[in-house]
Design a protein around this nucleic acid. Structure first.
Lengths: 232, 232
DNA sequence: CGGCAGTTTGACAAGTCTCAATGGGGGTGG
DNA sequence: CCACCCCCATTGAGACTTGTCAAACTGCCG
């Protein structure tokens, strides 16, 4: 598949259909592409903030702290938009969890163009607000939850994104390793594993192989996620 | 001071000067105002996401988890823009840390208008991206830092925002209590207090009264913040 | 000056991390 | 197609950071 094909798929999935041809062409001119395998770093580029669209596959956005400690700031899946920040106090890197196709743009250029098209500006704003809201939710998880609540809420969130429903259960394959989950939740790989075991013993979920998960009791899991009951 | 005055100050500080009069008038028509004292909840409104401009004072955005646990998602000071989310898995509330003046708008209406003015849309996008970047930084702090690193990086960040320089030292008054700091860093009030004492014993800072802070060695503090060295 | 709320300090408990060993999945090569 | 091997995941034991509970202290405000 060639780059133009990738741009078309990007346009179809992530641009509103009533974008003007002129804007579309200018977007295409500034678009860059990455097709990478699991584990690779898709984008090697410094100096400017990037706007990255995940066309297929899944990625993790990782921040490096001192002493080799890593924090997964966010996971993103096909259809998502993410921003790759220039480093502030920490350096950020994007990694492919699976084989991936990405389309990306220098953020400032993209914005300059986006604000000339109302539909596009609106869409980008919505996505940015959505990303901010998800980051806020993650903040709560990291700051005020114990290990079990962290894993439970993580699984509930992933299930909402990737899960398919099978008579009350939610079934999905985790594209990330236990280490990635730990690095995302602020836990060690061992603690993640222990919590998986405990949730299994509680009858809330089953696992098959390394990545298969079946949430047997989504409501029970949600109850252990430390979320505020909506009716409170 | 009357509401129109507040709008003028908002316009002067937070709107680009070349906004059209029509847009300005429509903004004024949808603007709402809050003037509250420390500790108050400035905005009681449900159902839609709000865009809040802090004209004066400072606020904390708090998320309630189950069992009365609170997580401070962000502090905001005069000049800041923040979004007050409709609740997702958690409920959010805004509290005034000091006497405050706020101007706020329903986010969707504001956006609809903002995208008709390029400068405005750009500005809002920039601010949203900035908020997202700060939230990412907070994620790292919560997920991968110990208590001392959390407090050190918190103080460095606040100093950059509120501190005034006095021959190498950075001096400021904390508008928030130890509890607020703990709720922001995912620590208890006792742990925050112990870390203050330890940093004091290390000669990195002095405190005066409950809120006065003098960072004697900002570089030394930064070194303990767990940040990645820029040159790495 | 007195009282109260917020802060500091101390002792102990608990949860998570660290280090270590075992187990199992899944990919590779024969 | 099967067997092997390596890497990831699981399980266990002990250490350590942080949380919990309690008491003393001190700014701050009336």
């Amino acid at each position: 598949m060639t780059a133009p094909d990738l741009f078309d798929r990007f346009a179809k999935s992530s641009l509103s259909p009533d974008i003007s041809d002129a804007t579309r062409l200018r977007l295409q001119a500034m678009a860059r592409y990455a097709r990478v395998q699991a584990g690779d770093v898709p984008i090697i580029e410094e100096g400017s903030e990037l706007l990255v669209f995940v066309i297929s596959g899944s990625v993790k956005l990782v921040a490096q702290a001192s002493q080799g400690r890593e924090q997964v700031v966010a996971f993103h899946f096909a259809g998502d938009l993410l921003t790759l920040p220039v480093h502030l106090a920490h350096a950020y890197t994007l990694y492919a969890l699976e084989d991936c196709e990405l389309v990306y743009f220098p953020a400032s250029q993209f914005f300059k163009l986006a604000v000339t098209e109302q539909g596009m500006a609106n869409d980008i704003l919505d996505r940015a607000m959505g990303a901010l809201a998800r980051c806020h939710e993650k903040t709560i998880s990291l700051g005020r939850k114990n290990a079990q609540e962290k894993l439970a809420s993580f699984l509930v969130t992933i299930a909402a994104r990737l899960g398919s429903s099978e008579d009350g259960a939610s079934v999905f394959e985790l594209p990330m390793s236990r280490r990635d989950i730990g690095d995302s939740l602020g836990l060690t790989i061992e603690t993640v594993s222990r919590q998986f075991s405990e949730l299994r013993e509680l009858g809330l979920l089953e696992t098959s192989g390394r990545s298969g998960v079946r949430l047997l009791d989504p409501a029970g899991l949600e109850a252990r996620a430390g979320h505020l009951a909506p009716a409170d």
